[in-house]
Each structure stands twice: as structure tokens, then as C-alpha cells.
């Protein structure tokens, strides 16, 4: 039996004034590209952070490759935050070498190709990069790794529209490792729709609709973008 890449069992996450996740149940099979769709504040980032081991659920069970999130799961997970979380004083190459010290699965040759593809200079200081360049850098770091699970929080935020489609196709095309599970949170549904195998619609911390992207399209006769409007509005 294959161990699911991620299991969330009745996961609740409370903050003082709000409930970010309200009893989420989810099982994601390895090798899938999953779209986590919802408006701002629907709980997407909280869910990804819980899977990455950066936040703890208030209640419920979380498993990543059969283990509770911790040091062991972090070896297999690449979490790319929506905002820049890298050190401003580091250079692009310095960051890649730093990450390589922790993740031997990071391939520096692939990183060099990606830097070229993303038009980033190795000697550039991260703090001096534009928002768009910082967004590209996140993808360089994430895609250079052979991580079993990639968690991408709004990967297209800050990237100019003409580049988005190119990057998305690269994400699931030639750059993606075989068998890698990718969870992408986004509200840019139209652009990302073609790459999803599986989708989860989140509203107010609950997964209101979930399923195989192709099956959902066939059953409802709607595109993901239309479903997004229908289910979440």
C-alpha cells in the first residue's frame, strides 16, 4: 500500500480572533499536482505551514509521508513561502550553497540552469532584488531540489503575467522531478488550472469541494475557474 504524501485528519487551527482551519480532512497521494484554491484568508497558507511543520494544529492529526511534521519530514519537503523569507544580506549563490548544506538533494547544475531561465545573477544580493526577482528566486531554490513534496504558496505572486504561463509549465514539465508531489496554493485559477491533477477548494477554513480535476470538470461541466466562482463566492 502506498503511503499518502499528506494526511490531514480533522485538523483545526485556531487563532485568537479566528479559526483558520475548521476540521479539514484530506489525503494526497504521492506524485500528484494539487491545487489549493481559495480566497485570501481561506486557510491556504496556514494549511501549507502546518504541513511544512511551521505551525501546529490546535487539534487533529497531520502526517507527511507517514510521519508527524518535524526534522525528518523537513528533509523531504520544500516549502516556498508567498513572501520573501530569505536573508537580505545573502547573495543568490550564497543562498543556494547554504540550502545545499541542509539538502544534499539540491543540484547546483540545475540551479545554474534555473538562474539563467529566471534571469537571476548569482552575485546579486537578495535584498537588492525586486519583488518579482525574489519570487523567481524562490522557484529556483525549490525547483533545484529533488524534494518529495513541494509546497508552493502563491508562487505566481509578484511575477509578471507574460512569465507566469512559462513558469507554470516549467513547474510541472521538464523541471519537475518524477513522482514529486506538488501542492500549489493560488487564487490565479485560470492560469494554473491546466497543471492540476487534483483540486481542493477552501472556504473559511473548510474544504468545501475536493477531487480529481478531470473528473470534476466532466461531472460538473465547468472549468476550475467557473467552479471557483460557483463554490467560493
Amino acid at each position: 500500500m502506498t503511503i499518502p504524501a499528506v494526511i490531514l485528519d480533522n485538523v483545526v487551527k485556531r487563532f485568537p480572533l479566528t479559526k483558520a482551519l475548521d476540521g479539514v480532512n484530506l489525503a494526497i497521494d504521492p506524485g500528484k499536482v494539487v491545487g489549493l484554491l481559495g480566497h485570501n484568508g481561506s486557510g491556504k497558507t496556514t494549511m501549507l505551514k502546518i504541513i511544512a511543520g511551521l505551525r501546529r494544529p490546535t487539534s487533529g492529526r497531520v502526517e507527511v509521508f507517514g510521519m508527524a511534521p518535524g526534522v525528518e519530514t523537513k528533509k523531504r519537503v520544500a516549502f516556498l513561502s508567498e513572501v520573501n523569507t530569505y536573508y537580505d544580506w545573502m547573495t543568490v549563490d550564497g543562498l543556494l550553497n547554504f540550502v545545499k548544506s541542509f539538502h544534499p538533494d539540491l543540484c547546483l547544475e540545475k540551479a545554474a540552469e534555473l538562474k539563467e531561465f529566471m534571469k537571476l545573477k548569482g552575485a546579486a544580493k537578495i535584498g537588492a532584488l525586486s519583488k518579482g526577482q525574489q519570487a523567481r528566486l524562490k522557484l529556483v531554490v525549490g525547483l533545484s531540489r529533488q524534494a518529495d513534496l513541494m509546497l508552493l504558496d502563491e508562487p505566481l505572486a509578484g511575477i509578471d503575467p507574460p512569465s507566469r504561463a512559462k513558469i507554470l509549465h516549467a513547474l510541472v514539465g521538464e523541471l519537475r522531478q518524477e513522482g514529486q508531489t506538488v501542492i500549489i496554493s493560488t487564487h490565479e485559477v485560470k492560469e494554473a488550472e491546466p497543471i492540476f491533477d487534483h483540486v481542493v477548494f477552501l472556504r473559511e477554513g473548510r474544504n468545501v469541494l475536493e477531487g480529481d480535476a478531470e473528473t470534476l470538470r466532466a461531472e460538473t461541466g465547468h472549468s476550475m475557474e467557473e467552479l471557483f466562482g460557483e463554490v467560493l463566492e
Binding site: A52, G53, K74, T85, Y87, F102
Partner: peptide, 14 residues
């Protein structure tokens, strides 16, 4: 303060 904690804590170290 600098917002680097998520990156640091995502590394596989104790």
C-alpha cells in the same frame, strides 16, 4: 522581525 523565521525553521535541523 525580518520575516526569515519560516525559512530557518523549514530547514531540517533541531
Amino acid at each position: 522581525k525580518e520575516g526569515t523565521a519560516p525559512f530557518l525553521r523549514s530547514l531540517p535541523v533541531s
